[in-house]
Every structure is written in structure tokens, then in C-alpha cells.
Amino acid sequence: MDKSEPTKIEMGENSKLERKVGKAPLLGSPSHAISSAAVPTKRAGSYKRGIAIFDLILRIAAVATSIGAAVGMATAGETLPFFTQFFQFEAGYDDLPTFTFFVVAMSIVVAYLVLSIPFSIVCIARSHVVAPRLLLIIFDTAIVTLTTSAAGASAAIVYLAHNGNQDANWLAFCNQFGDFCQTTSGAVVAAFITIVLLLILILLSAIALNRRH
């Protein structure tokens, strides 16, 4: 009897120790891991939302510059004053096919940028959605190509209007049509500003799509 009693007491102490160990809190619990993993997700969501807000601001600015380019070129015109109204020199944007193409192209750019604003707002409300951002980067690339072609061709005409070309015997006529050349030059500059804004928009979309988390 004396030998069995210490054995019973030891078993009781071992069971108590096992209970105490079983009640010990686990440091690496799943709830702790989930809460720590949720922090980078929230940061990534706010980061993408910030990009989307900046995208919307730049898109509105691009609308303003493209409207200025289209309206400026469409209203470019000047008539030289002479003694008789039956014999006058007149310059207008529709006299040059390049400037006509510029007006049509920039009108398309304005329409697209206005239609793309709701998609940019969707990217702000749902920053993790990929489809609207992917559509924006595809169509922004196409529009920047159209804008670059119109602005580049018109810039060449504006350069010839200001400087002429002695080898081709093309005379500079901006000395006579100063207001016309100034208006067309301003329209071309506004178009190049639109190109810069569109390139930044494409870069922002690429960054947002590349950041997965």
C-alpha cells in the first residue's frame, strides 16, 4: 500500500500539469495571423484608391486640354484687310487637310476621355477590380497614338508656316497671318500636353495592374 500511494500522487500531479499546459495560450493562433495579414491588404487597397483618384484628376485635366486644342484649331481663321472686299486673303483651318484631321482627331479624343471618366470612378469605388483598369490602359494607348499622329502632323505644318522652306521654295506666311498662326500653334501645344497626360495615365494604370496585393 505504501508503494502504490506515491504512484497515485505522481499521476495526479502529472494530470494537473497536463491540464495547465493545455490551458496555455497559443502565440501563433490563426486569428493573430489573419489580423496581421489584413494590414498589407488594407494598405494595398488605399494605395490603389489613391492611384485611381489621381487618374481621375489627370483625366479631367486631359479633357480640358483636348477641348482647348480642338476648339482652338476649329476657330482658327484670319482675313487680311484690303481696300476692296472683293479681293481678300483668308486663312482657315479647313484650308489645310492636316488641320482638318487635327480637329476630327481631337474631337474623338475629347469624346473618349469624357466616356472614360465613369470607368475611372469605378476604379475608385472598387480599387481591386481589374477589368475597368485593363480597358482603360488599352484604349488610352490607342488614343495616345491618335493624338500623337494629329499633333505631330500639325506641328510640321505650323513649323513651315512660321519658317517656310527655302529648298522647296515655300514661303513663311505667319508674318501676314499672325493671329492664325498663333491660334494654331496654341492648339498644337495643347495637344502635346494632352499626350503627356495620357502617357501618365497609361503609366498609372500599369502600376495599378502590376500591384497584385
Rank of each mutant, 00 (worst) to 15 (best):
E13N: 08
V129P: 00
I51E: 08
V144G: 06
V129D: 11
A131S: 08
A105F: 02
R19H: 08
A62C: 11
A74L: 03
M73D: 07
V130R: 15
E10R: 13
V110F: 06
A33Y: 07
H128I: 04
T100P: 00
A37W: 06
G152P: 01
T194M: 06
V21A: 13
I67Y: 03
N165V: 02
E18Y: 10
K8H: 08
K23Y: 04
N175M: 06
Q88P: 02
I202S: 09
T98H: 01
L134K: 14
V63L: 05
L201V: 06
I53Y: 05
V189L: 14
P132G: 07
I143M: 15
E90F: 04
V109R: 00
S35E: 14
K23E: 15
A76W: 03
A91K: 14
A161S: 12
A76L: 06
V63Y: 06
T41G: 05
C174F: 10
T100L: 03
A161T: 07
K23A: 14
T194K: 03
L198I: 14
K23W: 09
D94K: 11
C123Q: 10
C181S: 15
V103S: 06
A142N: 02
V130K: 15
L160D: 04
I51D: 01
L17R: 13
D140S: 07
A161C: 12
I117R: 02
L209R: 05
P132C: 07
F89I: 05
R19D: 11
N210H: 10
G164R: 05
R19C: 02
I200F: 12
P25H: 12
F177V: 03
S205W: 01
N165R: 01
A111S: 12
T41V: 12
G77S: 14
F173E: 08
S29V: 03
I60W: 05
F180G: 03
S120W: 01
V39L: 09
P40C: 08
S116T: 07
L197E: 11
G152C: 08
A172L: 07
K48E: 04
A38D: 06
G22V: 01
P97M: 02
I121G: 01
L27S: 14
F54S: 13
I124A: 01
G77P: 02
K3R: 10
I108H: 02
A52M: 07
Q88G: 00
R49E: 14
S205M: 01
A168D: 11
A62H: 07
A74G: 13
M11Q: 14
C174S: 15
M1W: 06
A131P: 00
I67P: 00
C174P: 00
L113M: 05
R133G: 08
A172P: 12
L146A: 12
G92H: 10
I121K: 01
F83Y: 13
F86P: 00
A24P: 00
G50R: 11
V104F: 09
I67Q: 02
L209V: 13
H32K: 13
V144K: 04
A206M: 15
H213A: 15
I124K: 03
V21F: 11
K16F: 05
G72L: 06
S4H: 08
T183A: 14
